[in-house]
């Protein structure tokens, strides 16, 4: 679904003099993504972790052809993002949700906002109705269909944005920290919706997040640092390197840390625990063992 081969992307920044008196006209290049290699299979649920400034968001924009690589090759859904003629095909199939919902809502009524995408695709009216209702119910916002988005809280707005992307029936959903502004249940609902779309509808998911507990739900985790992939594997494989993750500005779920520290105290506990249930099971096993 996504194949990145030595993808680099440089931002052009105007150099500002040290005394901040103004630009001196020089342009410097900032390498946000550097020789990045990554493969995502169709139907996979992939999480991308990485500290602020590691290049995650730039990569997300590259996969949607909002940006194109400065060098290297990025193929999404069989289309090379560097080819201008492919851009429409790429974006139609790759729904994108950003962190701040306020930048993504355009209509004055929630259901109009969600209908905007399919309307532009020329989807028949009855089908749009179905898509809007379905998308709203997936994000648990059906009762707000006729509300004005301006009266919604940040978390509710974000769910409207996700519904808007879902109404496009994309086969790839790219979510750039979609839960950063949500409350615990909002986070859970969004994750359940995203994970359900992946399991039931086979939509490929690329989830960028700072919440380690969310990455646990993915099939595969990529860790980025300084514009490149520095770790990859199943969540269990990645989270079994807590020291390495902390050095990258990240963390592990609390239960993983508890296992790590008990093991350091000499308790013969498995250290590749990533969920509460696994931890409960393992502790019961230890308790009952002689």
């Amino acid at each position: 679904m996504i194949s990145a081969k030595y993808v680099s992307f440089d931002y052009k920044a105007v150099v500002v003099d040290a005394d901040n008196k103004g630009a001196n006209g020089d342009i410097k290049l900032i390498n946000a993504v550097k020789d990045m290699n990554l493969d995502v299979q169709a139907g996979e649920f992939v999480a991308i972790l990485g500290r602020n400034g590691s290049g995650k968001s730039t990569f997300a924009k590259l996969t949607n052809a909002l940006l194109t690589p400065s060098s290297g090759e990025l193929v999404v859904n069989g289309f090379n993002t560097c080819v201008e003629a492919n851009v429409w095909n790429i974006r139609q199939n790759a729904g994108m949700v950003f962190q701040n919902p306020d930048n993504q809502i355009i209509a004055t009524i929630v259901e109009d906002d969600i209908a905007f995408g399919p309307e532009n695709l020329g989807v028949p009216t009855e089908e749009i109705r179905k898509r809007v209702d379905n998308a709203l119910s997936l994000v648990n916002m059906s009762e707000y269909a006729l509300h004005s988005p301006h009266f919604l809280s940040g978390g509710q707005k974000q769910r409207v944005c996700i519904a808007g992307a879902l109404a496009m029936h994309p086969n790839l959903l790219i979510l750039d920290e979609p839960t950063a502004m949500l409350d615990p249940i909002g986070r859970k609902e969004v994750l359940a919706a995203v994970s359900g779309l992946n399991k039931n509808s086979g939509i490929t998911v690329l989830l960028i997040t700072h919440y380690m507990e969310e990455a646990v739900l993915a099939d595969k985790v990529f860790v980025m640092d300084e514009g490149a992939v520095v770790m990859q594997g199943t969540p269990r494989e990645v989270f079994s390197h807590p020291q390495k993750l902390r050095a990258l500005g990240l963390d592990v779920p609390q239960v993983t840390e508890i296992a790590e520290r008990l093991a350091a105290h000499g308790v013969p506990i498995k250290t590749d625990i990533i969920t509460i249930n696994e931890m409960v099971e393992e502790l019961c096993r230890l308790k009952n063992s002689k």
């Binding site: 409350d183 615990p184 249940i185 909002g186 859970k188 507990e213 779920p253 609390q254 239960v255 508890i258 509460i276 249930n277 931890m279 409960v280 502790l283 019961c284």
Partner: peptide, 21 residues
């Protein structure tokens, strides 16, 4: 807390599960 749309730290959730066991 969960019924109010909130949650608790994993450490607290784990504690409650272990007490049940």
């Amino acid at each position: 807390l969960i019924s109010m749309g909130l949650s608790a730290p994993q450490a607290a959730l784990l504690t409650q599960e272990l007490i049940k066991k």
